[in-house]
Structures are given as C-alpha cells and as structure tokens.
Amino acid sequence: MPLPEGFCPGRVVIVRPRGLGDVVLSSAVIDALTRAWPDARLDFITERASRELLEPDARLDGIFLLDGEDRDARIRGGGLRSAVSWVRERSPDLLLDLFSNPRTAWLTAMSGVPFRVGLDKRVRRFAYNVRVPRFHGPPEEDHRWARDVQLDFLRNAGIRWAGEAKASVALTPEDAAFAERVLPDLGYAPGTSFATVLPGGSWESKRWSVEGFAAAGRAAAECLGAPTLVCWGPPEREDAEAIASRLGDAGRLAPPSRLREMAALLARSALTVSTDCLGRHFAVVQGVPTVGIFGTTDPRDWTPPDGPHRTVRGGPEEGYPSLRDFPADAVVAAVRDLLAEVDSGRAPL
C-alpha cells in the first residue's frame, strides 16, 4: 500500500545508519524529498562516522547520531531508545527506513510515526505500514545503481517529484579553500588537468595492489601531462606513500585531509582511479570521470548506467585469488581509453 494520494508531510525522518558511501548516495533522497515537498522539514538518523558528511547540509533540520554523544540544538546522539525519544519529540508524519535491518525496524516500530516506510522483509515487515520491495525481479538479475535503489524506494512508496534527484557532497567554503590552497603547494598551476588515484577499500577484498595503482597513475600522468595526485584516508596511508614513491616525478602525495577535504580535491581532478570505496562515490556524484576497480562486489551495483565511467573486475570469479593479484593492464587501458573519450567529447558528462 503506497502513501495516500495528496499526502504532504510537515516533517520526514530518513534512517540510513551505516555505509559512508550509501550515506553519500542517500543525498539523492534528500534532494528528491525537497523537490516533492519543499516546505517539509527533513531529519536524518545515522551513525557517528557520517556526521562530517551530513552536518553541512542545510536541507537537514536535525541529525541524530546513533551511539553518539552530541547534545547541541541541531545534532543529537545516543542509543536506540534515545533515538526513539528524539523522533517522538519531533512528531514527524513520515519515517523512511532505507536500511530496514532488525535494529532500525525496532526503532521504526517504536517511533509512533503515522506513516512508516520500509522494505518488505520477513518478520521486520510488521514495523512498517507502507512496505516496498527490495528487488526489481529476481535478486540475481537486479543490478540497479545503488543511488537508484534508494530513489526507487521512494517511488515504490508513492512519492513523486519534479526533475532529476541528484546525489551530491555538501562542501563548505573551508573545504573548497583547502583544495585551493593545497594544489598550488603541490605544484599544480591553476587550470591544470590532473588525475587522482585512491587506494581505498573497507574490506581486504576491495584492495588493489600498490604496483597496479602506480601503473595506472603513470598512464594518467602521461595522457594529461601532469603528475597524478595520490589521495588517501588514514587506513590507506602506507599504500598511498608507496604509490607516490613508485610514481616519482609522475605523482604527488596529497596531505592528510578530512573526508570533505578529500572530496574537494577529487572534485578538481579530470579522472579518478579507485577501488569500490567512499572516494569513488565522492568522484561519481561530483561528475568526475572514474575508472573503478572491483573484486567481489559487482560494478553494476555501484556505477551509474550512463556517464563517463569505466569499470574492470578482477576477483575470484575472473580467476584471480584476490583483487591484489589482478594485473594493471586492463586498468591502464581503461584509463587511456576514458581520457581519450573525454578529451574528444565522446564520453557523456
């Protein structure tokens, strides 16, 4: 049963507690809801790690951080029971549980919100009075981009909006200033076209080799005539330093950065080469062409169906013990091919 025809809520709560990349893509949900109900106030329940991504988003009236300790006017934190109390205090008309796991289903059931939307999954379906399917057709054949999965969640609930709902990264002027300051310090003149490589991956099965990234970075530097910038987060520092060392004059190592500062650097690049990680989502939603390197995850689930993106896959299904064993040849070819297409105007931007 979809939402009633003509339904127009005064306040909506979005629940998406984990997966930084998924939280980035859920910004399209925020955009869609803003388009559907411009006067509605939007709240977001997530986990502490996502605070940096959501805090600058002026479209959000309130944010609750599960297991957080925040107590300011706009951002609160606490356990599940505190989250339920926070939702009840705010008296929303609609709650959207994008995650729909047992924990968020319990939160939803206890919230007292009149309309509660969630996935139609076994016992937890009873937490929701508007239930939507997880898959379109057989699960093994459903390979919608993860952003579109979230937007279809809204459509299946009966929510409609005008125009294209887009994912984005909420950057502050300080984030942009970081990039503007760092790039000249690294030797990039204004207007220089350069590539970035990012050796991210929250799971070992998503990690590629230092040698592979160095080869891809060198190919990009040759095509663009500028050193490749090696970006990184704290877990990737050792790999990033090794890649930059192998690149020599063909590379530059980015300084330590916060998540949004990294996104600001990636936004200024002509191409990002990355595994299936948060940084690639940053690049994709900011319109940066990408070459994605995948192991056990399916690239179709994490890549827009159109746009300037190439993917290669080198996991066990392709005959490699792990993604780290995948050679660089296919990635280097994809880098050269995509940069040639973008330069000629043949790749859709």
Score class of each variant (00 low, 15 high):
Arg51Met: 09
Leu33Pro: 14
Glu241Pro: 13
Ser274Tyr: 01
Asp72Ser: 11
Trp106Gly: 10
Trp106Glu: 12
Leu25Gln: 07
Gly248Met: 09
Leu229Ala: 04
Gly10Met: 03
Leu253Ile: 09
Arg252His: 07
Gly68Leu: 03
Arg218Tyr: 10
Ile293Glu: 02
Ser322Ala: 13
Leu171His: 08
Val149Asp: 10
Pro256Glu: 13
Ile293Trp: 01
Arg124Glu: 02
Gly295Arg: 04
Asp249Gly: 12
Asp337Phe: 09
Pro199Arg: 01
Leu183Tyr: 05
Glu318Asn: 09
Asp152Pro: 09
Asp57Gln: 06
Phe294Met: 07
Arg268Asp: 04
Ser245Thr: 11
Thr311Glu: 14
Pro114Val: 01
Glu140Lys: 12
Ala58Ile: 07
Phe294Asn: 06
Gly279Thr: 01
Ala157Met: 06
Gly212Ala: 12
Val312Gln: 08
Val332Cys: 07
Gly200Thr: 01
Ala270Glu: 07
Thr275Phe: 01
Lys206Leu: 05
Val149Gln: 08
Leu151Gln: 00
Trp86Phe: 15
Leu3Pro: 04
Arg90Leu: 06
Arg134Asp: 08
Arg181Trp: 03
Glu211Tyr: 04
Ile243Gly: 06
Thr311Pro: 13
Arg11Phe: 04
Arg258Ile: 08
Ala170Asp: 06
Val210Met: 05
Ala32Trp: 00
Phe194Asp: 10
Ala167Gln: 00
Ala40Cys: 10
Ile293Cys: 07
Ile45Cys: 12
Ala254Asp: 12
Tyr188Asn: 13
Pro289Gln: 06
Ala36Gln: 03
Asp337Leu: 11
Leu338Phe: 03
Leu349Ile: 15
Leu253Asn: 03
Pro173Asn: 04
Gln150Cys: 06
Cys277Val: 12
Asp70Asn: 13
Phe135Thr: 08
Val117Asn: 01
Ile75Cys: 15
Pro234Tyr: 04
Asp70Val: 13
